[in-house]
Write a protein that binds this DNA or RNA. Structure first.
Lengths: 223, 223
DNA sequence: GATGATTTGTACGTATGTATA
DNA sequence: ATATACATACGTACAAATCAT
């Protein structure tokens, strides 16, 4: 009887729904401000309304959807100001992670960070945007883990997931790939030196650059 | 006019349940590690299991309860290490708020902060712990708002609510009241000067002191 | 402004999965 | 290890509220 759920490790149906709906939001399939009809979603995923409701509640707690009593749920429509505040928070949180990483990373973690970073230069030279984006995610995850603070990890992960819908195509801008690597390099160098303040500052600068790129992208689109 | 809505905004019963259960946890009525039986809670609050389930889901998203598939929910049992990481996060977040506050508070906000702070010295001299605690909450809320960053506000509020169960009696320790005021004073002074870095540093120091006091309390008590 | 239609909120029943003897 | 007991997860039914006409 386990044949059905063998593909991916799915705990409960609610979790599957959370990921499914979140994906549709992140991918842009469901647009900010768009209505999320429980019955429609239930039918679309061939489940009852109950798990959909719980999934929406969780997504609301994550901040991805907005849910008003008796009036249904919509994809969270973030204002430009709110978006800016989220990017600013992200920069601060990453700054914290980088600072802590510089002070606390194990030698193994440092080695992994550096080797991954060096290897990524190849992706830059080849202009492999997709692959660099994947590496980039891992790079930042290294910083989050390297901070050795579970709560900061949760906060930065939460913020990152909330920002996800607005970070598409961040590497499409001219020269962002090479610049991103240089900024990573500054962070890595500082961490290797064990210079927490420098690492934090470099990370803040880096994320702020990404933010500006994304904000330009978002405001460029018509909404 | 709907008379009820103006008094308290108790939209849905789920929200009421969230607050009710959260209160019982924060107050210590439900202890970390304690089982949260849906049927029992439903009976206790005279509602069906459905809103209880949704409330538990939300509380799980907030991190106050831990919910394992098919195995029920328990009040989140935080390890000493996790608790330390949360306090550390809190210090960082408050540092960010104080730094931003120093740079961004309106003149009106600055005036309110300073006047409240000066007025609170009276409470210290009179040894009014309860009232000072209430003021202290307001003081920190001022910093959160003064940062003018909605996302940071959410993060710091979330973290604060998670720490709430462990912050009881923080002012019972010898001399904490006067020391707290002095630390506040350093923060306020830096903000008035518009010195962001000094304000951030002062806030971090302040929260770390509170953390140490609370950690001693937690590890000292045997519940 | 009232009424009908649609959608959310709550109650409850059944089955599956987990823990215990 | 098998079976039994029990709590949870999901589905369905009904009530209440919102909106559209």
């Amino acid at each position: 009887m386990r044949a059905k759920k063998n593909l991916i490790r799915d705990g409960t149906t609610v979790d599957v729904m959370v990921r499914a709906i979140a994906d549709r939001i992140v991918v842009g399939d469901l647009k900010p401000g768009g209505k999320l009809d429980e019955a429609t979603l239930a039918e679309r995923f061939a489940v009852s309304r109950t798990p959909i409701r719980e999934a929406l509640a969780q997504l609301a707690a994550m901040g991805l959807v907005d849910r008003r009593p008796n009036r249904g749920a919509i994809v969270t429509a973030v204002s430009q100001a709110q978006l800016a505040s989220m990017f600013e928070s992200m920069a601060e949180l990453e700054g914290i992670c980088a600072r802590f990483s510089a002070l606390r990373m194990t030698s193994h973690e440092r080695a992994a960070l550096e080797s991954g970073h060096q290897a990524s230069s190849r992706l830059v030279h080849l202009g492999k945007e997709e692959e660099y984006e994947a590496y980039n995610t891992e790079f930042h995850s290294c910083l989050y883990r390297g901070a050795h603070n579970t709560h900061v990890f949760e906060l930065v992960t939460l913020t990152r997931s909330r920002l996800a819908p607005f970070r598409r195509a961040q590497f499409r801008l001219s020269g962002r790939l090479a610049k991103s690597w240089d900024e990573h390099d500054a962070i890595v160098t500082a961490i290797m030196r064990g210079d927490g303040n420098a690492a934090g500052e470099a990370a803040r600068v880096h994320v702020n650059k990404v933010s500006n790129a994304s904000l330009v992208f978002v405001s460029g689109s018509s909404d």
